[in-house]
Design a protein around this nucleic acid. Structure first.
Length: 437
DNA sequence: AAACCGGGGGA
DNA sequence: TCCCCAGGTTT
């Protein structure tokens, strides 16, 4: 029979470590930063901050947090807001499912707990978007309950102080460190102590060049005493992101849509869920060849594929004008290599959702049928697409994708991921200088 | 357990 | 450039 090894072997798991806990807590209380979410212990304010701080640095979060709290000051305000407004406030922060889950959690608090975040670990853990770290953070910081809150900082600090050599990429290691972190919490000081661990990791015990000389617990740090602080924590490396080649169309409208751009909304699940984007295609792997040659920037293949896609999706016939720019975007697990083709519309194709250009005025039979189908779909899905019938009639809905003509003001209202925001923003700059189509 | 989910800043 | 970040959810 195999013997099950405990993950983290250390006496501190049983006995705690008075030196470490006392010194660290004192340091934090003397040195802690003044941060917007440290004004008070309002559980909602703590909750929002902890979600924003997932995978995101303090300095990045602060302006978003201030805007968010001003716009959604209470659980109720957040629960009742249109999702698009919430996503807009999150624009540029990334990991947009955090925003969607946070609002879903707010709705749960309204329905299940009468709008009051309960002082109950199981209840908080059950909220959408709240995992082990966040529940521990909320319980300890908002309610001062002795729960561990183990994030990357805490794993680094404890790995170094106790010279732990387990791979912190493994869930079992995290579980062990959680036990250790729980045993270290000083009586009645859970909130401050957990924040102290993270503050030390953020300010002193940093990944690359830890400031051991100014560390409040350097005297008994086993990692430093062994001269191994730079080796710890041990973490297996992630796989490199896969490459995806994509072709995007930047399409100028005409007639009533002159000066506007055609964009569409991504579906509600998966990558960049619910965000808006330029219409684009995933290309086959051999597209790498097309991207390799500078000379091929006419790109007849891409132009043709984009034309077919937009025609199928919206019934509109676009006229590709030529290469605009290439743009790379790195996600944690995918590398997008995107080639943007600038297009306009043929004279005969003037906005399918425009009532003045109804089906009868269109010579092409296919386009006519597409127009009818689109209008019908727009009516059916009016509630989902937009907030008013008028807006819905302007949306083009083919295979579930919502297309829309936007001007600059629309761009201020709709949530875009940074990569598209950049491209569209630059384009309008150029147009302002008279360089665009 | 591994994959999926963004974007930015530090070194 | 590379690395990592105040992680959670889905498969």
């Amino acid at each position: 029979m195999a013997i099950k090894q405990p993950t983290i072997q250390h006496t501190a798991v049983q006995n705690g470590h008075p030196y470490f806990s006392t010194e660290l807590l004192a340091w934090y209380r003397a040195q802690k930063r003044t941060l917007p979410w440290r004004k008070n212990h309002d559980p909602y304010r703590i909750w929002v901050s902890e979600i924003m701080l997932q995978q995101t640095r303090v300095d990045t979060v602060i302006p978003y947090y201030l805007t968010f709290m001003e716009k959604f000051p209470t659980v109720q305000a957040l629960a009742e807001a249109p999702e698009e407004e919430v996503l807009k406030c999150w624009e540029g922060l990334g990991y947009y499912s955090r925003a969607r889950n946070l609002q879903a959690g707010a709705k749960m608090v309204m329905e299940l707990y009468d709008g009051i975040i309960p002082n109950d670990k199981e209840a908080v853990s059950g909220l959408k978007g709240v995992g082990p770290y966040t529940s521990g953070a909320i319980m300890s910081i908002a309610f001062n309950r002795p729960e561990p809150a183990v994030d990357g900082n805490v794993m680094r600090v404890l790995s170094r102080f106790f010279c732990l050599e387990e791979d912190i990429a493994k869930p079992a290691t995290r579980a062990g460190i959680e036990k250790l972190a729980a045993a270290l919490i000083p009586e009645g000081a859970a909130g401050d102590f957990n924040q102290a661990l993270m503050e030390l990791g953020a300010l002193i015990c940093t990944p690359k060049s830890p400031g051991c000389l100014t560390c409040p617990v350097m005297e008994e740090c086993e990692g430093r005493l062994a001269g191994r602080e730079l080796e710890l924590p041990i973490k297996t490396k992630a796989k490199p992101p896969r490459q995806e080649y994509r072709a995007a169309a930047l399409i100028w409208g005409n007639g009533e849509n002159a000066g506007k751009l055609l964009v569409r909304q991504r579906e509600g699940k998966g990558l960049l869920a619910g965000m808006w984007e330029l219409p684009h295609l995933l290309l086959p792997p051999h597209a790498a060849d097309w991207f390799a040659e500078e000379a091929s920037k006419e790109q007849p293949e891409l132009a043709e594929m984009l034309t077919v896609m937009v025609e199928q999706d919206t019934g509109q016939l676009i006229r590709p004008k030529g290469w605009l720019k290439d743009a790379d975007h790195i996600f944690s697990h995918i590398l997008w290599k995107m080639r943007v083709i600038e297009c306009d519309l043929g004279e005969e194709s003037t906005g399918i959702a425009d009532e003045k250009n109804g089906a009868e005025s269109k010579p092409e039979e296919a386009a006519s049928k597409a127009a009818e189908a689109l209008m019908a779909a727009a009516e059916e899905r009016e509630d989902y697409v937009n907030h008013s019938a008028e807006e819905a009639s302007k949306s083009l809905i083919p295979g579930g994708m919502v297309y829309r003509w936007i001007d600059r003001e629309d761009m201020e209202l709709l949530p875009f991921p940074n990569l598209f925001l950049r491209i569209i923003g630059e384009t309008w700059e150029r147009r302002g200088r008279g360089e665009a189509l």
